[in-house]
Design a binder for these strands. Sequence first.
DNA 1: TATGTCGCTTTGGTATACCAAATTGAGATA
DNA 2: TATCTCAATTTGGTATACCAAAGCGACATA
Lengths: 205, 205
Amino acid sequence: MILEGELAPGERLNERALGERLGISRTPLREALRILASESLVRVEPNRGAIVAPIDRADIEATFEVLAALEGLAGELAATRISDAELAEIKALHFEMRAHHARGDRAAYFAANQSIHARIARAGGNDVLGETFERLNARVKRVRYAANLSRARWDKAVDEHDRIIAALEARNGPALRAILESHLAGKRESVLAAFATGRPAEAYD
Amino acid sequence: MILEGELAPGERLNERALGERLGISRTPLREALRILASESLVRVEPNRGAIVAPIDRADIEATFEVLAALEGLAGELAATRISDAELAEIKALHFEMRAHHARGDRAAYFAANQSIHARIARAGGNDVLGETFERLNARVKRVRYAANLSRARWDKAVDEHDRIIAALEARNGPALRAILESHLAGKRESVLAAFATGRPAEAYD
DNA sequence: TATGTCGCTTTGGTATACCAAATTGAGATA
DNA sequence: TATCTCAATTTGGTATACCAAAGCGACATA
């Protein structure tokens, strides 16, 4: 939705003003806000209205911890259940991603990267897992862009992706789980490091 | 909410009728339905209204698979981070649960059991994990009551709980993870078995 | 008798009006 | 000058009215 980056965390969301800006009435806007609230993207305080949900260090750590567990499970499932077509598509995305990396195109890299992880999350055939993963991922998306600050970390992430693809091709579930869990742990650290240096660009969506 | 068990899965939820029955207007009712929809407890079809979300075998399998991973992580975290007070409270609940088991009081057993698992999920201090666990757990709560059909399975579950408590006291994270994961797998099997025998009582809440 | 079409009724989607709670600013008093 | 109080305005909560789309039934025709 439009809230990702266009409005600052903690900002009050005036229902009348926002509704007018979006060209819709308060009723559907409120319904949308309730949905966003249930996804922890906005926070609705009783009789106080909605604000863009702020995200703090503890939230980021906690979310990545869960994401790592979920993606680990996804990897384990995907290794045994993924179809050849899905694998081929993920490989294609992987090489596109490497191309973006080679060109230094961070935005395109990020999009391909997200797509790969989303596909792995869904490749195990567990819809609940896929949904839960994407829901939690949405909460940290705006700060994830801030990662990959250092070229070294970026290169390392790409290496890890090579290993992810290799494990997936080998249908080695336990290995894939281990790689994904440490990959996510690495992401967590770089996001936290970037987050520590005075709230970097949260607007990339 | 009142939807747990009081309305049959698949049942249409007429907004005007339901609103009158609850003594509220359509606006807040619709907001509540959207929230329930985002938790997959009801399904809202465009221009068709809301129905109580049906749950099928695949949903149950998928949800328990994710719950097992989440509770495994929770156990690993809890083993290292749980406070003495929280541990004492969980032990107290455990013995209450054993008392209910000894008396054969399934409803009370179930409540204590749920409380124990919820506390373990939160004991690791990861709020995102706790929330996610309870959200997913809510989706299968209504069918979980149907488990523990056989006395043998029930006894086995209680034994597993003894081992859970032991691992928690020993602060043995990996062991606790393993026990919880297999415990959930066992739950999944008994729920699926019960579910297979013609949709048993979904109304216990 | 069966099928297709048209219209009516039901029901969800949206806008708006009204109400109550909360916040803020001004004025008065200590 | 600072603080407390009261009132006015802002803003979220709820009810209701209106609109449009979908479902259903009846009637007509093949």
